[in-house]
Design a protein around this nucleic acid. Sequence first.
DNA 1: GCCGCCTGTTTAGGATCATGGACGAAAGTG
DNA 2: CACTTTCGTCCATGATCCTAAACAGGCGGC
Lengths: 182, 182
Amino acid sequence: MSIDVGTRLRSVRLIYGLSQRELARRAGVTNGLISLIEQNRVSPSVGSLKKVLDGVPMSLAEFFTINIDVAPQFFYGDDELVEIGTDEVSLRLVAARRPARQLTILRERYAPGAATGDDALSHRGEEGGVVVRGRIELTVGGTARVLGPGEAYYFSSSIPHRFRNVGREPCEIISASAPPTF
Amino acid sequence: MSIDVGTRLRSVRLIYGLSQRELARRAGVTNGLISLIEQNRVSPSVGSLKKVLDGVPMSLAEFFTINIDVAPQFFYGDDELVEIGTDEVSLRLVAARRPARQLTILRERYAPGAATGDDALSHRGEEGGVVVRGRIELTVGGTARVLGPGEAYYFSSSIPHRFRNVGREPCEIISASAPPTF
DNA sequence: GCCGCCTGTTTAGGATCATGGACGAAAGTG
DNA sequence: CACTTTCGTCCATGATCCTAAACAGGCGGC
């Protein structure tokens, strides 16, 4: 046994901003089990680990695939975008290193003070985008950052997230989501 | 518990052409455990499943990622190759639907009766190729097929495989492997 | 201080997993 | 036909997991 299930689980849980008890409640297990797993004092059965991950939610495939060594990159500065277009058509690729992207591009505008709601969103798929005009506060997995024009984001939509325009002028975002909803 | 670990394990084991006892021996567990897991009568601990998969070998991430519903496509007929080149430079892509390919092309010749060895090969990475001239018998994961000019192959190198020229004339193959060894 | 409420950890015991061996069925050999 | 080998399954026992509950520490309010 060499794979560090405990550390992986702890990382996943903290990304979602949950306590051991809260995750245990959602997963239908006891908080003690979460504690023991995270300390690598037990090797959970596949069934138990599945139950725990269902409370996040995350699939077993994702759990064993994600790289917890490097923190998932949620935010991209202006210079972190990769140009993949031509001279006539410039295409700056967001999250260029992230494999298997399948996105549908959207254009979003936020009035001053507007937000996606009081509660954080959490749904299937992935999403990313670029701020074109104005400033917007984006909260992803407990980490918040204000993005300005030229800055971008990319994250798994199942991680709770929320957009809020904290500036005085309208905010415009070119965003993308997958799988396509419309 | 909804994920069918048992069926997945059985599929993986049969792809490698192993009996329960043989897999158990390689993995350092008992054949009874393999039997119980494949019948879904127990939910193995992550540690145990890891040990079992180490005997194949296969990672936990692969195990939960692979699609066992559609059998992995090892062989490609002449009409199953995809043209991705230009009029001047024709590039017919093998395993076009397989994502994240990273291959180094090789050209191989096999004299009549020649083979890669008595034992099947098994190593890291992936490989594929096209028969240009002659006929060659290719065995992959217990399944054998004789390929002629224009036919091709693609598989994960960790699955035991063996090439053998069963014809009377030399055989020529354009092959590729990853990660690059030279 | 002394609550109340949260956090993660620990422990005893019942539930489940994993082992070693026995069993019957099927296939090959003399 | 008997004998052997290999197959997958099943069973009793010991090992491990998982639960329920107690425990210790941190933080804010009164």
